[in-house]
Amino acid sequence: MGDLVLLSEAQMRRIEPYFPLSHGIPRVDDRRIVSGIIFVIRNGLRWCDAPASYGPHKTIYNRFIRWSRLGVFNRIFEALAAKGGRSDQLMIDATHLKAHRTAASLFKKGMFPRRIGRTKGGLNSKLHAVCDDRGRPRVMLLSEGQMSDYKGAALILPVLPKTKVLLGDKGYDADWLRQALAKRRIATCIPSKANRKVQIPHDAALYRRRHKIEIMFGRLKDWRRIHTSYDRCAHTFMSAICINVS
């Protein structure tokens, strides 16, 4: 297949247990089709532009949409993230992902949510993430672009893995969040906002390690169909994100 993406047999063994069972006629080779999905998302292609080596482009598109609705890619990410083990340091942050006009159209209609909101930068979505000390995502949440960082943290808090310290930027400087983490015996390394009357000290040397989550976001946006969302439904866009980090 030349320089085209093709998952290795070892990679397939890790994710195959989470594929749906095939009923009736055997489906087209999973390795080829999943590799084609990755190639399209990484390079920002239209589905009809997928190389013929991966098989029919309709099969690639239909497999991606059907498995996205079934939550297959989300389960793969959750399973692989759970195998990462416990980390003494976790990092939380959020980033904006621009929505293309084709994704933003009709965002109030349809069965599935769009997770597209309006900010000063236009229409976009927001990805909230928690990473371990190696920059590996452990929890991810997709929301409308206008959702604040600490509101996203409130939704993530119930599923936050056990850890000793949580690193975050000033957007997470909220008393309720510090108190909620303290109840779970999690220390915080979060700089105080400028308008806080009594500044709360933090470990500056430890805080510098937070760059790993920024690197993760940067690598995520290297994939063109993630940097700019062309998907109208949030479940397909989130599936693309899960494929990247898995």
Rank of each mutant, 00 (worst) to 15 (best):
F112R: 10
W223Q: 04
K98V: 03
I37W: 01
G168Q: 04
P113R: 09
K83L: 07
D231G: 07
M147H: 11
K162D: 12
S105Q: 15
M147R: 14
A234W: 04
R115A: 09
P51E: 10
A81G: 07
P161G: 04
A194I: 01
K83E: 12
V139R: 01
L90V: 11
C242Q: 06
D133T: 09
H128L: 08
H100T: 03
L70E: 12
P161K: 05
F107N: 01
R184A: 08
N74V: 04
L206N: 04
A94H: 06
I15G: 03
L21H: 15
L4T: 10
C242S: 08
D93L: 07
C242E: 06
R13L: 14
S192E: 00
P51M: 13
C131R: 01
R224S: 10
Y207N: 12
R31Q: 13
S87P: 02
Y18G: 08
D29T: 13
R224Y: 15
L142T: 03
L97C: 09
N74I: 08
W47L: 05
I243L: 12
D175I: 07
V198P: 00
A153D: 00
R225D: 07
S105T: 15
R46I: 02
K183S: 02
L155W: 14
K58T: 15
G36H: 09
M147Q: 13
E16F: 06
S8H: 13
R118G: 00
G121R: 14
P51W: 12
L166I: 13
M12G: 03
G85E: 10
S239T: 11
A240P: 00
G36C: 01
R114M: 00
H202P: 02
I241S: 03
G44R: 06
L155V: 13
P137K: 01
I156S: 07
K221E: 01
S68W: 00
R219I: 11
V72M: 14
V245C: 04
M216Q: 07
K164D: 00
D88M: 09
G84I: 05
I226C: 06
K183E: 08
N62K: 12
A79L: 03
C233S: 15
R66L: 12
M140E: 00
S35F: 00
L157K: 01
F73P: 08
F217P: 04
Y150E: 04
I92L: 00
A174M: 01
S125N: 11
N62I: 12
Y207S: 11
